[in-house]
Design a protein around this nucleic acid. Structure first.
Lengths: 244, 244
DNA sequence: GACGAACTATGCCGTTCGGCCTAGCCCGCC
DNA sequence: GGCGGGCTAGGCCGAACGGCATAGTTCGTC
């Protein structure tokens, strides 16, 4: 089915932000006709080798961009949440698979019409381009984290990001619901599933977090967790020149 | 000084390819006026916090995109070679520094005029956008390599990439001249300098490479090196559907 | 050509993370 | 509600990589 996505859709309102591929301001997308598709958990949106004729925006649920090597090693490049745009990368290399983590919905916009619109609508063009640019910044952070941080720092980074991105802001203690399972977290962070599990336990023992269930994390010591996560962050904003 | 870059410049002819940030087809750039700047080894093109008012294309030499964390850990996101475009990412986060590895020259194109041209020249727009998209693909590969490969696989991957990208094609044995030093290689691969050094030695002992000097690598066993490097590659092309 | 500084190689050892295995838990299905 | 499969936790051990120290090499400078 084809419909115009409404900017006023409540699902979008507070879900934009720098987590996944990009966050092309959702209102830019809303004027375009797009096809909504639903996926069950684990289902592929784009498979390796598929013609990448579409860009996608997540409407509901969480999706993952996965690369699997020929000998079975797996790396998750990004998790996409509602408002995130994805499908920018596979176009060049066809090496990523986009899958639903849980049940979810994406809006598909054909590349042709996207391109056409980019060429006639400078604002839209800028928005998409900014999306790609922002995705690159996220890739830099992600790569630095994988290349230069310990297991505990990686997990702390992941949890604080999830909290900022998808946590319910008002709850006390701050709580993160993990939609993905341990293997996905491991593959996102460049660790093994055992190490992720052990690191959760270790954080629990240190009093940083509580695990009321395996998929729910309560952050008991935000400062401590952030100190761990911040290790691979840049200098604080106050120390930098802010430029428009 | 300002001048139009000539497509016919011999330095560009065979140097395009997927190594650094992107390879916006150089001819697209050649019609734009751009400012050429020269840098000595180690000099900064863009520093953290600088206003990112320009896009750059490498004309001569090799440049690196570096992220340094507050506690001094260092990750190199990409090496840029002649024909590569860079400066796409810092715009969003200001967390990357672009530096000259050896002496080199870049062409700077102001973002304003680049944007203006993107809006009126669809072909140019596509080229720049493709550049960003390709950079994302490279980031995926790089990240997978860092997250899921052993030290030896990483170095093999690096050497084969350099050979394909910057090696003199005709030489026997295939030879790679390293313009960067061990620390840069380590920071690019997410390793320590000692591990890089030891891994070079190990490859030498296994007869994969020879090191006539510390900065020159001869590839003695291409097949063996590629087997190592290929571990984190995708399935062979023959097994995939090729799509335009 | 001699000096010095920076870069590289390498031995030794410690730590961290991975790999294998089993037990426990949760959840879904019948 | 009971059964079964998949996911998670955690013990045990080993391998790989990191960190430190030192020796050797290269390169630039005077």
């Amino acid at each position: 089915m084809t419909l115009a996505i409404q900017t006023s859709d409540a699902a979008f309102q507070h879900l934009r932000g720098p987590f996944g591929m990009s966050d092309v301001t959702h209102s830019r997308f809303s004027h375009s006709d797009a096809t909504l598709s639903h996926y069950a958990a684990g289902e592929e949106v784009v498979g390796e080798g598929d013609p990448t004729d579409y860009f996608y925006m997540v409407v509901k649920g969480v999706f993952r961009a996965v690369k699997v090597t020929r000998d079975g090693r797996r790396q998750i490049f990004a998790f996409y949440m509602p408002g995130d745009m994805c499908g920018l990368e596979p176009g060049a290399s066809y090496d990523l698979t986009i899958e639903a983590v849980g049940a979810g919905t994406v809006a598909a916009l054909s590349r042709l019409s996207c391109r056409a619109r980019m060429n006639r609508d400078p604002e839209f063009n800028s928005a998409v381009f900014e999306g790609a640019t922002r995705a690159l910044s996220l890739a830099v952070d992600h790569m630095t984290m994988i290349g230069r941080s310990s297991a505990e720092e990686r997990l702390a980074w992941f949890l604080t990001m999830l909290r900022d991105r998808a946590g319910a802001p008002g709850r006390h203690p701050p709580t993160v619901d993990l939609v993905m399972q341990r293997q996905d977290i491991a593959d996102y962070l460049g660790l093994t599933i055992e190490t992720v599990s052990r690191t959760f336990t270790h954080m629990k023992e240190r009093g940083l977090i509580a695990l009321p269930s395996t998929r729910r994390v309560q952050i008991l010591n935000s400062a401590g967790l952030e100190r761990l996560a911040a290790a691979d962050r840049d200098a604080p904003v106050s120390a930098r020149t802010i430029c428009a």
